[in-house]
């Protein structure tokens, strides 16, 4: 994988005539590049766990025997599935702060609220993943657990949940990859994460004397590479969890 990536970049820079390691550019670009990576990782640190918690809770609530929450939650899921996240992010950043008491309004509160809505956006998708996971566990499993004298709660905890989570991990890895890249949407409301900080930098060098057009390729190739590595790391982590808890034939049991 690493060798393939390096080869691809080498070919790319030969064809497009740029030098990915251009020292002049990196001297200018490195601070915003590094700040951008750090900020992106911070957003991910909030968004990924929060979205998983939202997804799991909503997914579970929608299969639970009590139906009261079912309707509002399906509205929640349909809303975030149907509206482009970039529009939700704009509304959240512009309107969000005015909904809060004054003492919570710091300079970057809009972006934080926007990040939270990204977590809700992905949470809506993940709730469908978890819900599908729960529903893939055959009804007979719950019945068998109850026939041993387990309460419904114990049957969920010891029998249904361990299987539902295992079935949810592979599609979850897919969704997490989307979340990593969706953090770039925060750039539109002034979040200087990797995409935003690089975009600002690019605008500056475009109009400064002595620049080279090929620097644009360097910047965006470097940014793409970082997103690629982050996505790869997140999915690999989930794949490792999947392998660790893999049970032979679990996915095949459909009786």
């Amino acid at each position: 994988m690493a060798v393939g990536t390096i080869l691809f970049i080498l070919v790319l820079q030969t064809v497009l005539r740029f030098n990915i390691l251009d020292p002049v550019l990196w001297a200018l670009y490195f601070p915003s590049f590094l700040d951008g990576i750090v900020l992106t990782l911070r957003y991910l640190g909030i968004i990924l766990p929060l979205s998983a918690v939202i997804g799991f809770t909503v997914g579970w609530a929608r299969i639970a025997p009590f139906r009261t929450l079912s309707w509002p939650l399906s509205v929640f899921v349909d809303f975030f599935r149907g509206v482009p996240p970039i529009i939700v992010v704009i509304f959240a950043a512009v309107l969000g702060p005015s909904l809060l008491p004054a003492r919570f309004r710091s300079q970057d509160i809009g972006i934080i609220i926007a990040a939270l809505t990204l977590a809700m956006h992905s949470g809506a998708y993940q709730s469908e993943i978890f819900r599908a996971g729960f529903m893939s566990v055959p009804r007979g499993q719950l019945e068998a657990a109850q026939s041993l004298g387990m309460t419904r709660g114990a049957a969920m905890r010891y029998v249904v949940l361990p299987q539902a989570l295992r079935l949810s991990i592979p599609p979850l890895a897919n969704e997490f990859a989307v979340v990593v890249k969706d953090t770039s949407l925060l750039a539109i409301v002034g979040g200087f994460e990797l995409f935003g900080s690089s975009f600002i930098f690019e605008q500056q060098i475009l109009f400064s004397p002595g620049n080279q057009l090929s620097w644009i390729f360097v910047v965006w190739t470097a940014v793409a590479l970082v997103y690629f590595v982050m996505t790869f790391a997140v999915t690999e982590l989930l794949n490792a969890i999947d392998r660790r808890y893999h049970v032979k034939g679990l996915e095949a049991v459909t009786v």
Partner: peptide
Amino acid sequence: QVGMVFQSFNLFAH
């Protein structure tokens, strides 16, 4: 106190 055996076995798959 009353054991049950099912047509589709229903062994806990995990």
